[in-house]
């Protein structure tokens, strides 16, 4: 990763990450996803994130807004652009890449 790109997370570091996890009831996948997500956030974004869990069984009208099709879906609202990760988030590498957390890490270590 070159230095030009590595500079961008500097700004992001100041922001509070807004994450939304869409689930449908207490299914195995949903529970797994939530557990996984909490773990990653505590590891990499401690104190800098807000996590909102939306149960579509209770609020089905919210599915349209974020264009939710798959369950579970994790939506990164802030920082922009919006990213979506679907699945139970069991693959840590993919989640971090998807949320663009790895670059932040890389910068921190450097």
């Amino acid at each position: 990763m070159n230095s030009l790109l590595a500079n961008t997370p500097l700004v992001m570091e100041e922001e509070t990450w807004e994450l939304r996890l869409y689930v449908a009831g207490q299914t195995t996948k949903s529970v797994t996803a939530l557990a996984n997500l909490k773990k990653y956030c505590e590891e990499h974004l401690k104190g800098r994130y807000q996590l909102e869990v939306i149960d579509l069984l209770q609020n089905p009208q919210l599915a349209e807004g974020d264009q939710i099709l798959a369950i579970p879906t994790l939506v990164r609202k802030v920082p922009q652009p919006i990213r979506k990760i679907i699945g139970d988030l069991s693959n840590k590498e993919k989640v971090l890449v998807g949320l663009d957390i790895r670059s932040l890490e890389g910068f921190g270590k450097a």
């Binding site: 869409y22 449908a24 996948k29 797994t32 996803a33 579509l56 069984l57 089905p60 009208q61 599915a63 349209e64 264009q67 939710i68 099709l69 798959a70 369950i71 579970p72 879906t73 652009p81 919006i82 990213r83 979506k84 990760i85 679907i86 699945g87 139970d88 988030l89 069991s90 693959n91 993919k94 989640v95 890449v97 998807g98």
Partner: peptide
């Protein structure tokens, strides 16, 4: 209901289903 699907926005990890689509349609 316009369902917008954009591959570039979606990362896939682990198991999932399309319950969201069902819920939207059902709603």
């Amino acid at each position: 209901d316009h369902v917008h699907v954009d591959r570039s926005e979606i990362e896939e990890t682990g198991e999932y289903d399309l319950e969201g689509l069902f819920i939207r349609l059902g709603y």
